[in-house]
């Protein structure tokens, strides 16, 4: 659900990081928070237990590039990975413009990854969204763990889709490819947004004001 504000010249998108428990979703946001200048981001808000497990969501607002006079802003969310938090996951997924599914490459986590992906697809469906139609990136995280599952094997298990999702190998704890993942999903979100505006008969980025009046 992109929010276009023609008064403040801002476009706002929501990107949600999903995946099984302990896969590194919050770690991704912590790295992004730590690397972006203070004036380009808000605080990282976490609703977590005393042992730092996310119970509702983490939230980080960041500013991105200026495109044709419009500031693009991304609201990054994580969902709790634990199976028990299905209802809260569905709430956070509402209105998502793009998803990053963070996969734990540890061999013993294979089934959890597959289960979490199925649950994510179900959560989206309950929100009226088809997962294959959403900007979606698979981040194969923890590539540094001993015996990390081969990418081909993960693709076989998780990425047998009509159009396979883009894949990024990462080590979020070291910041490796955290921004590459974010770039990948953000770029697809922007392309999708641009195409939707063009096909709706509305203006391009900032070409004309009063979009709501013309497309209702």
């Amino acid at each position: 659900m992109a929010l276009v504000n023609h008064d403040t010249k801002e476009v706002q998108f929501k990107i949600v990081y999903c995946g099984p428990a302990f896969s590194g979703k919050t770690t991704n946001l912590q790295h992004i928070h730590g690397r972006i200048d203070d004036d380009r981001r808000g605080d990282l808000l976490s609703m977590a237990t005393s042992t730092d497990r996310t119970v509702f969501f983490d939230y980080l607002p960041i500013d991105a590039v200026l495109i044709k006079g419009y500031h693009t802003k991304f609201q990054l969310y994580t969902v709790p990975g634990q199976v028990a938090y299905n209802a809260t996951r569905q709430l956070v997924l509402r209105g998502a413009d793009g998803l990053v599914f963070v996969v734990d490459s540890s061999p013993e986590k294979l089934e959890e990854n597959a289960q979490a992906l199925r649950t994510t697809e179900e959560n989206l469906a309950q929100n009226g969204v088809v997962m294959d139609e959403l900007p979606f990136v698979l981040q194969y995280n923890k590539r540094d763990v001993p015996g990390a599952v081969a990418v081909e094997h993960l693709n076989l298990l998780l990425n047998q889709r009509p159009t396979p999702f883009p894949v990024v190998e990462a080590v979020a704890s070291q910041g490796y490819n955290v921004f590459a993942t974010l770039n990948s999903v953000a770029e697809e979100v922007l392309q999708r947004f641009h195409a939707s505006v063009a096909s709706g008969g509305g203006p391009g980025w900032g070409v004309r004001d009063q979009v709501g009046a013309t497309v209702g």
Binding site: M1, A2, L3, V4, N5, H6, D7, G128, V211, G212
Partner: peptide, 15 residues
Amino acid sequence: SSGDYQLNLTTESAR
């Protein structure tokens, strides 16, 4: 609304 949608806030509405 459900599924994919956008919110387009015109200058006039914003004011």
